[in-house]
């Protein structure tokens, strides 16, 4: 854990493995993170829906938001906010692409 802690960037996989407007999950240091690609780039958020743990990487993506496949909660991929809901957004992570590799920063 310590090697990964405190803002370290971690290589998490190939950029080509996340198709446009889709998501895939990765588990880093025990955290499950969903990586999405939209028209304005990559996004990384906590992968388990706060409602009942739905797999957000499997959700529909549009307008910078993902819709949970289980019961349809919608979250903003930039802020992590639950659209139209009061509490419980997602944790947002930094993610970037370099030389075809994806890197995630752990807070």
């Amino acid at each position: 854990m310590s090697a990964l802690a405190d803002g370290a960037w971690v290589a998490i996989g190939r950029a080509a493995d996340v198709p446009l407007w889709e998501g895939r999950r990765v588990t880093v240091a025990g955290r499950r993170v969903a990586i999405f690609r939209t028209e304005d780039g990559l996004h990384a958020v906590s992968a388990d829906c706060p409602h009942a743990g739905g797999p957000l990487q499997d959700g529909l993506v549009a307008d910078g938001c993902v819709t949970c496949p289980l019961h349809g909660r919608r979250f903003d991929l930039r802020s992590g906010d639950w659209i139209g809901g009061a509490d419980d957004g997602l944790t947002v992570y930094e993610v970037h692409e370099r030389a075809g590799e994806l890197h995630l920063r752990l807070p």
């Binding site: 889709e22 499997d58 959700g59 496949p69 289980l70």
Partner: peptide, 17 residues
């Protein structure tokens, strides 16, 4: 990307993913 997850993997998603 326009398909619900069921039609991406041709199986019905369950409550535990």
């Amino acid at each position: 990307h326009a398909r619900y997850i069921n039609d991406r993997v041709h199986a019905n998603i369950q409550n535990d993913g």
